[in-house]
Amino acid sequence: MKENMSEAPVGLRERKRAKTLALIQTEAIRLFIERGFEATTLADIAEAADVSARSLFHYFESKEEIVFSARANFPALIAEAVGRRPADEPLLDMVENALVDTAARYGSPQTKILGRLVRDTPVLRAREQAKYEHVERALAEALADRIGLPAPDTKCRVTAVTAIGILKLSVEAWLATEDSGAEMHFRAAFAELRRIAC
């Protein structure tokens, strides 16, 4: 009984922390969209989220960190999507289907708004490029793990590099349109790759 009682406050504390973190993210993105990234200060965000500036710094050290925290789990989402694919699926099909699945599951209007914010803000766009390198490594490892090869495996790395290039191209195309989902842009890019490779 005592064990259960001691666990409850920890769970409550974590829930409160997660709720505050989500509120800060939501209010920050709203302000960035309304006022612009550069014009919004951390003090503005703290006020909108009804937290002190000191409390805000317990969660985030910068505005950039707030933006990218909302996308921090992207490498894990892609790895999970790869893990759901049949192990005997050809690598190119595996990575295409994993990316399409991820886009279908998580390509919300909020994701698009955030993507446009990053695209249109030079300091965020530069950091985005570094993120793609991390996603590429995670994807190569996930592919190797799925088909039972040691990482880093050359064909998995080549597939991952190619897929991340297609990811960037497809997301750019999606952000430039009013399409609701990015899936068709992924399919079109992979179809073009196969035509070139033949």
Rank of each mutant, 00 (worst) to 15 (best):
M1R: 03
M1W: 13
K2D: 15
K2V: 14
S6W: 15
P9S: 04
L12K: 14
R13Y: 13
E14T: 10
E14L: 11
L23Y: 09
I24R: 04
T26H: 12
L31F: 06
F32V: 08
G36N: 07
F37P: 07
I45Y: 02
E47I: 11
D50R: 13
D50G: 10
V51L: 03
A53N: 12
R54P: 07
S55N: 14
F57R: 14
F57C: 10
F60G: 03
S62H: 09
K63T: 08
E64I: 12
E65A: 10
I66Q: 02
I66E: 08
I66P: 01
V67Q: 00
A70V: 15
R71N: 07
A72I: 04
N73G: 11
P75T: 06
P75Y: 02
P75N: 08
L77W: 11
L91C: 08
V95N: 06
E96T: 09
E96I: 04
L99N: 05
T102I: 02
A104P: 12
A104W: 01
R105F: 01
G107N: 01
P109N: 01
T111M: 07
K112P: 02
I113H: 11
L117R: 01
L117Q: 03
R119W: 04
P122C: 00
V123E: 08
L124D: 15
R125W: 03
R125V: 04
E136V: 05
E141T: 08
A142Q: 03
A142G: 05
A144F: 15
D145A: 12
R146G: 01
R146L: 13
L149S: 10
P150Q: 06
P150C: 00
A151N: 06
A151R: 02
D153Y: 14
R157T: 14
A160H: 05
A163L: 01
I164D: 01
I166G: 02
L167S: 06
K168N: 06
V171D: 00
E172K: 05
A173W: 01
L175A: 05
A176P: 03
E178N: 14
E178I: 09
D179G: 01
G181P: 01
E183R: 05
M184L: 11
M184D: 15
H185V: 08
F186S: 03
F186T: 13
L193I: 14
I196G: 01
I196Y: 08
